[in-house]
Simulated assay, not measured.
Amino acid sequence: MTFRAVRVLKEAAVIAAEDTRHTLKLLNHFDIHVPLISYHEHNKDERGPEIIQRLLNGETIALVSDAGMPGISDPGVDLVRLAVMDGVPVVPLPGANAALTALIASGLDTNTFTFVGFLPKTNKHRREMLSKLSNHPYTLVFYEAPHRVRATLHEIKAAFGDRQATIARELTKKFEEFIRGDLDSIERHFVEHQPRGEFTLLVAGRPEGEKLAEEPDALAGLDVIQAVAELMNQGINKKDAIREVASQKGLPKRQVYQAVLDSDLV
């Protein structure tokens, strides 16, 4: 919590919160006496326009989330969109964010990373996303609820193989903990220990030199441009996609590169 955030909350006409009872504890701690209204996933369609109208009338409204930063895997993103559409200034107040907080202490590559957040709820869509991400060369950052941690670890390992990973839980809180190792050892850890708290999962990208997951049936009927485009749609960068297509089709990499260059494929 920053001095600036405390000041802004004190100066706001009203504070919009996911759980007003939860936020009231924070306000009491900092001796902040500002009216609270609820804004969450289940009332955002109705409450959002009401908040925008109050903002257009000149009020200053502060938005807080139960944990982390509003707008990251959070319904605050919808309120920001409405505000931007109506020309209402949006002022971010940086604070603790689980993804970045976990990343910097993970021991994994921080130069280039991809934030995934929560995986889809349905088995089919979750498997499809993990299949696409399996060839991703950068550190991947997931969020997960405690009751889903074991299953998600198993699914990621099945899709990616046994890579280096870190799990962080209860970040910035009393029971903050980091579990580092490979996916296999971390999965075994949670067989012996009940997952508790909010979790951030970080998984290393596809190791350099590891063969890309092949989909010969999907690429066989495509020309080189279509094949490269298909792999890029799966999250593979252009350079690796060109190399893989050249390998699968038995062509010189330079020939595939030139064909892609001539096609203006982004």
Rank of each mutant, 00 (worst) to 15 (best):
K25D: 03
L55W: 03
V84C: 01
V34H: 07
L27I: 09
L82G: 00
I61W: 08
A62C: 09
N28A: 14
E41Y: 02
V77R: 13
A67Q: 03
R54V: 01
E59Q: 13
D45C: 04
D66P: 02
N43G: 12
G76K: 00
E59T: 05
H40M: 04
G68C: 05
L56K: 15
L63Y: 08
G68N: 05
R81A: 13
P75V: 00
F30I: 10
P70W: 04
M85T: 14
D86L: 06
G76H: 00
D66Y: 07
L36W: 11
E46L: 12
R81N: 11
E41D: 15
H33N: 08
L79R: 05
H29R: 14
L56E: 15
P35N: 11
P70S: 06
D86Q: 15
N57H: 11
A62P: 00
N57C: 13
I61E: 04
I32K: 02
L63S: 02
T60F: 10
L36S: 09
D86F: 13
K25V: 11
L63T: 03
I51R: 06
L82Q: 12
P35V: 07
S38A: 15
L82D: 05
Q53A: 15
D78T: 08
E50H: 14
L36I: 03
H29A: 14
A62K: 02
H42V: 02
H33D: 14
D31F: 07
L36V: 10
D78K: 15
L56S: 12
V80N: 02
A62V: 01
S73R: 00
N43W: 13
D45Q: 14
L26H: 14
S38E: 09
P49C: 10
V84D: 02
K44V: 06
T60Q: 14
D66H: 06
I51Y: 02
S65L: 02
G68S: 03
G71D: 01
N43R: 11
Q53I: 00
E59M: 10
E50N: 06
H33I: 09
V84A: 08
A83W: 06
D45L: 13
D45W: 07
D74S: 06
D74P: 04
N28G: 10
V34L: 06
A83T: 03
Q53T: 14
I61N: 04
H40V: 03
F30R: 10
E46D: 13
T23A: 09
V80C: 02
P70T: 10
P75Y: 04
V77D: 11
D45P: 02
L79I: 01
S65G: 08
F30Q: 12
L27G: 06
L26E: 07
G58K: 01
R54Q: 13
A83F: 05
L24H: 13
Y39W: 09
T23P: 01
H29E: 10
D86T: 09
N28M: 12
D86S: 12
R54W: 11
L27V: 10
V80D: 00
R81L: 13
D86W: 13
T60Y: 07
T23Q: 05
K25G: 11
M69N: 09
D86I: 04
I72Y: 05
N57F: 04
P75G: 04
D74A: 03
Q53S: 14
V80R: 01
A62Y: 00
E59L: 09
K44S: 05
P70E: 09
D78N: 14
T23L: 00
I37C: 15
E59K: 12
G68Y: 00
D66F: 04
G48R: 10
V84R: 11
S38T: 13
G68H: 05
I52N: 03
K25T: 12
E50R: 14
